[in-house]
Simulated assay, not measured.
Amino acid sequence: MSENIKDNIMNEFLNGYDVKRISTGEILRGKVIEVNDKEAIVNINYAFDGLITKEELSLDDKNPSDVLKVDDEIEVYVVSPNDGEGYVKLSLIKALAIKEKDEINKAFKGENNITVYVKEETKGGLIAYYGNIRVFIPGSLASRERIELNILVGKSLEVKIIELDFRNNKVVASRRIIEDQEYEIKRNKLWSSLKEGEKKTGIIKKLVKYGAFVDIGGIEGLIHISDLSWNKVNRPEEVVKENDKVEVYIGSVDPKKQRLSLILKDVNKEPWTLHQDEIKEGNIYEGKVVRLTSFGAFVEIFDGIEGLVHITEITDDNISKPSDVLEINQKLKVKVLNFDKENKKISLSIKEAIEGSKEYLNYVDKEEGLSLGELFKDFKFE
């Protein structure tokens, strides 16, 4: 029997009843009334029940009973109002595809996220599916971190559609966009929560001449070389190395410019706080020359505390520069002339320390006219 004859018979039958006509391409809602190994029968509230063959149930040749159960309510696509056997030929795949395309289109226009299933790794990225719609995720957009793409295979991922062209079957998505947005939200929240003096755990990311950059959980801050230790530091490598885990203090925070200064040295062990009560004007201390300038020498009398010996306080001899008689790391005695606690400044004198020494006075009684270099000959150099 030809298709035309079948259609004529169907039309004649329907003309005898007051029923709504259906046509190819319509989406109907129905209820599953029977499922077997070859097909599923669906009540679509029509003169005839609908039939979905195994091929129209899933793309991966699943058993119909693994896809549908009796009493499931589903939407179906009308392939043909008359299959010639007294059923309306239906497709679940096509109905889902229309629905899924509509959902993807709305997500794309609204810049909303969708969840896809990653099926396999391919050249240049990943192949995922939103229902039955193929979605490509470029490797560079699979994550904001460097990862092996194969670890995502078999997982569900929340992504954002960035390209959509159903005519050419082109659906491109990005996971990285979402992770970048989440990172920025977390980053901004962290910036607003930072407080000066607060202690944080971080990782040394990069060393530069002037300090070290530290990641404290999504934000990088700088430890200036002067804040690495209370002692003088010539190079950051003397104190830390890359990937070290460190405990740091928040120095200053500028959320608007997103600038952060950090301090590695323990603020509770600040040398001036620890030793200021031990420093008295007129007292003599043993120190070490740590810097030489044209106008004098800086001598460290406690770890992290140094004072200035002006060139006029080095010796009564006529010298053109401190390095004429002093060397770096030279140990000697100095006398405190002035101590400014508020500004943390100390003025020191070498010649007054020597003049106040009994050993020096006895020495002068026996040996007059010795140079400062000779007077310092008993001090060891490091």
Rank of each mutant, 00 (worst) to 15 (best):
M1W: 11
E3S: 11
D7P: 06
G16Y: 14
D18E: 14
G25D: 10
V32A: 00
N36D: 15
N45L: 03
E56D: 13
L59P: 06
S65C: 05
K69H: 07
L92V: 04
E111G: 11
N112G: 12
E121V: 08
T122S: 13
L126N: 04
A128V: 05
F136A: 00
I137K: 00
G139N: 02
A142M: 02
S143M: 01
S143I: 00
N150A: 06
N150K: 13
I151T: 14
G154P: 10
L157Q: 00
V159Y: 01
K160S: 06
E163M: 05
F166S: 10
V172T: 12
A173E: 06
I177A: 10
E182P: 12
Y183E: 11
L194E: 12
E198L: 12
I203V: 15
V208Y: 12
Y210F: 15
G211E: 03
D215A: 08
G218Y: 05
L228D: 11
W230R: 02
N231Q: 11
V240D: 03
E242M: 05
V246A: 06
V248Q: 06
D254H: 10
L262V: 06
L264H: 06
D266L: 08
N268E: 12
T273L: 09
H275F: 15
N283P: 07
R291I: 01
T293P: 06
F295T: 13
A297Y: 03
E300W: 00
F302A: 05
G304Q: 02
G307V: 01
I311H: 02
S320L: 10
K321G: 07
I328V: 15
V334W: 02
V336A: 05
K345W: 00
E368S: 13
D378F: 05
D378Q: 11
